[in-house]
């Protein structure tokens, strides 16, 4: 099982000093192809950290969110290239395999990406993009929106009980 050291996190902080766009990102691995199974495994592990299972609801991968993200990657070459760079970066920081990293180390690495990485550099931008897409897919599933407290889509039921909460007599009289 891989691990992530405090020294590595310090190096990650230094990453923020270098530009992402148009430049080579510190600690970024060479731009080699990433196997589809590596891509899928790393992405699944990452989104399951962003949206893990708990006592009330399923994890992202249990709802097929990783598969939807892979579909989105397959349909967009630019997106695919960027996300693959992000996934390679994750694996590199993890000593080879993010999915094999111990849970506390995964948490530490993602916390750094979320809170300290600059959003215009690879680690921060990758985190923000995957989070945005993952929550979009997750909370547009029935299990996802039910977990947030929504009971049904807006139609065909709506909320007709609100019609019974008519304005008070005082409110109507004041206005009429």
């Amino acid at each position: 099982m891989g691990s992530i050291s405090r020294r590595k996190l310090l190096l990650l902080t230094l990453c923020n000093l270098l530009p992402f766009s148009g430049g080579r990102v510190f600690a970024s691995p060479p731009n080699t192809a990433m196997g589809s199974s590596d891509t899928a495994t790393t992405l699944k592990a990452f989104v399951d950290m962003l949206l893990p299972a708990d006592e009330q609801s399923a994890s992202a991968s249990e709802l097929g969110i990783d598969a939807q993200l892979l579909q989105k990657m397959a349909a967009d070459k630019t997106l695919k290239a960027f996300w693959q760079r992000g996934l390679r970066w994750l694996n590199k920081q993890s000593g080879g395999s993010f999915s094999a990293l111990a849970e506390p180390d995964k948490i530490e690495l993602i916390r750094w990406m979320a809170e300290q990485a600059k959003p215009n550099l690879l680690p921060g931008a990758f985190f923000q993009q995957i989070r945005y897409e993952a929550v979009t897919f997750y909370y547009s599933t029935e299990e996802g929106w039910k977990d947030s407290g929504l009971q049904h889509p807006p139609q065909p039921i709506g909320y007709p009980e609100l019609a019974k909460k008519s304005l008070t007599t005082t409110e109507v009289l004041l206005n009429d």
């Binding site: 949206l51 609801s57 979009t136 996802g144 929504l150």
Partner: peptide
Amino acid sequence: VGPVSYAQRIIPGWGQQLKRDMR
């Protein structure tokens, strides 16, 4: 008017805390 927009724009974070905050 739905949880997607909350998670995208309003409720920050990730992991267990994000789910708790969404609820």
